[in-house]
Write a protein that binds this DNA or RNA. Structure first.
Length: 243
DNA sequence: CCCTGATTCGC
DNA sequence: GCGAATCAGG
């Protein structure tokens, strides 16, 4: 598998959306988790909390000094630490539990009359599960319950030759799907991954940010004293959606 | 053990 | 540029 523009775009988006490298690899198919991480780094997408971050230049220097006690001090450069910029209170992606594989709304019209294997360049990028109605119990808020492990069966990563199910419903006609995202449109998720109407905001971004001006306002807030905080910070992913 | 991302380094 | 191997924390 090679890194086509589409696949790179998917990688970028999912990475920014807080998906784990494993999830991204699985969604893309044909690549390993390491491949995804490696590519992400080459794309300079890092900027994500790593479970294994030294993060302490002094400790590093100390360790280095200890390891090579005989070497002259290599002038430990004081690394710049996170400045107190306005802390994003609710980076929507941070709390992302396990958004399912990319939901494609791309209405791929399936013409039944032509049976031949046409190497249709259908976006194979993401395995698409037919939007089969998931019948589950309904929670207090009216949302569909989903067992933690059954977001979607990522199990059949078999690259679908055709994407039949994406019915061109008028519902999704104007919605922005995962694969339609780019650097210029707002990536704020609307709805829940796995649900049929899950899509993204899609408005023009606030330059320099992944979201439009409105959603930047939601995503980046000044840290307020607990008492003064809104009881419910926006949770774009996960969490029951009030209806 | 499992998971995670980071890094290295031969290709 | 790519990604397996390896590392290291949770």
């Amino acid at each position: 598998m090679s890194w086509t523009d589409e696949r790179i775009q998917t990688l970028k988006t999912m990475w920014e959306a807080g998906q784990t490298a494993s999830q991204i690899a699985e969604a893309l198919g044909g690549v390993s988790r390491n491949a995804v991480i490696g590519k992400a780094h080459r794309l300079e997408l890092q900027a994500r909390p790593s479970p294994v971050k030294p993060n302490d230049p002094e400790a590093k220097a100390a360790a280095a000094a200890e390891a090579s006690a005989s070497i002259a001090t290599p002038a430990p450069e004081p690394v710049e630490v996170e400045a107190p910029k306005p802390a994003p209170v609710a980076p929507p992606v941070a709390a992302a539990p396990k958004p399912a594989a990319p939901v494609v709304a791309e209405p791929v019209v399936d013409e039944p009359e032509d049976d031949e294997d046409q190497d249709e360049v259908a976006p194979v990028a993401a395995p698409v599960r037919a939007p089969q109605p998931i019948l589950r119990s309904v929670g207090p808020g009216g949302f569909l319950r989903q067992a933690p492990g059954e977001q979607q069966p990522p199990s059949t990563p078999a690259p679908p030759r055709r994407l039949v199910p994406a019915k061109p419903s008028p519902e999704m006609a104007n919605k922005t799907s995962l694969l339609e995202l780019n650097d210029r449109i707002c990536k704020w998720p609307l709805g829940h991954p796995g649900e049929p109407d899950f899509h993204f905001c899609g408005k023009a971004v606030n330059p320099g940010f992944p979201y439009c001006v409105d959603h930047c306002g939601h995503a980046y807030q000044a840290q307020l004293p607990r008492r003064d905080r809104r009881p419910t910070p926006p949770l774009p992913f996960g969490g029951p959606r009030p209806r």
